[in-house]
């Protein structure tokens, strides 16, 4: 079985200036996230189960070889990097995964993978769209937001979340693209000899297309005012009262503190008491 794992090369923590929206991140803090590492672990386990091979792919600059070497050390059989570097800028963060999916697919040309595993979303503002674009491009089935993978005979079952806490169990045809949450599995720890060997391994690099820098402007987030229903009162006076809540008994929002733990507990319990949330079950 041919298994591909897509490992991202994203900023794991980005600071946003609350006044200007300026972006700042430590270049050393780039890599793949827990979900992508979980995808790799799933890939390695399935390869063991089905006697398959794992190809790890990343789309990133030369420094991204590091995630591929980590993958090799953990047991991936082969790695490819598609050479592309995205600046840390609002236009790259606005990205939809279409370009990245295209780049990943370019690394798979001439191959016919049975299963492509991705993380649920990448760390730097990712929205989890890359896997679906990849499925579309590869003509593959998809299962996104998977929390559990099981095998049943020769087939692979994926559990994924639906709305409202229900889950759906999907049987994956081949090829399929699966994106997994970081739930349940952790990437195995590479042995020292494997780690040392991976340092020496050559990484295959193929050129990637530069992305078009789209028009996008970043600014610090401000909550959107929520729309409210139109007041229904019969008279203008009633409607004004309804909108302003003037006669409703309502404590105005307050922020207090800094408080010590004891003071905070007092305030909290006191508030609950005043609003009728005393002890006892609801």
């Amino acid at each position: 079985m041919e298994i591909v794992v897509a490992l991202g090369w994203s900023w794991q923590r980005v600071a946003v200036d609350p006044l200007t929206g300026g972006l700042d991140a430590d270049g050393r803090d780039r890599g793949s996230n827990a979900a992508e590492q979980a995808a790799l672990e799933h890939g390695l386990r399935l390869a063991e189960r089905f006697d398959g091979r794992v190809l790890a792919v990343t789309v990133g600059p030369a420094a991204a070889d590091e995630v591929l070497r980590t993958a090799l050390a953990a047991g991936a059989h082969e790695v490819i990097r598609v050479d592309r570097d995205d600046p840390l800028a609002p236009s790259s963060l606005a990205k939809n995964g279409a370009d990245t999916a295209k780049a990943i697919a370019s690394a798979l040309r001439g191959r016919s993978p049975d299963l492509v595993l991705c993380g649920d979303r990448s760390a730097d503002g990712g929205t989890g769209t890359t896997p679906a674009f990849l499925a579309a491009r590869l003509g593959a089935a998809q299962a996104l937001g998977v929390v559990k993978i099981e095998t049943e005979g020769q087939s692979i079952l994926a559990h994924r979340r639906l709305d409202g806490g229900s889950r759906e169990v999907l049987r994956l045809p081949r090829p399929a693209v699966v994106s997994v949450e970081a739930a349940g599995v952790r990437l195995r720890r590479a042995s020292l000899p494997a780690l040392l060997a991976a340092q020496q391994a050559a990484v295959q690099v193929i050129p990637g297309e530069r992305r078009q820098p789209g028009r996008a402007v970043g600014r610090p987030h401000r909550p959107r005012p929520r729309e409210l229903p139109v007041p229904t009162g019969a008279t203008a006076h009633d409607r004004v009262l309804e909108l302003t809540g003037a006669l409703q008994e309502r404590i105005p929002p307050t922020v207090i503190g800094p408080l010590s733990a004891a003071e905070a507990a007092d305030e909290l319990l006191d508030y609950l008491q005043r609003h009728g949330y005393t002890r006892g079950t609801s």
Partner: peptide
């Protein structure tokens, strides 16, 4: 944002407050 939208915002160390509760 959570405190901004809250009816009561308490500025305090959450782990300590929980322990106290």
């Amino acid at each position: 944002p959570m405190t901004a939208m809250a009816d009561l915002g308490i500025v305090a160390d959450a782990p300590e407050v929980l322990r106290e509760l």
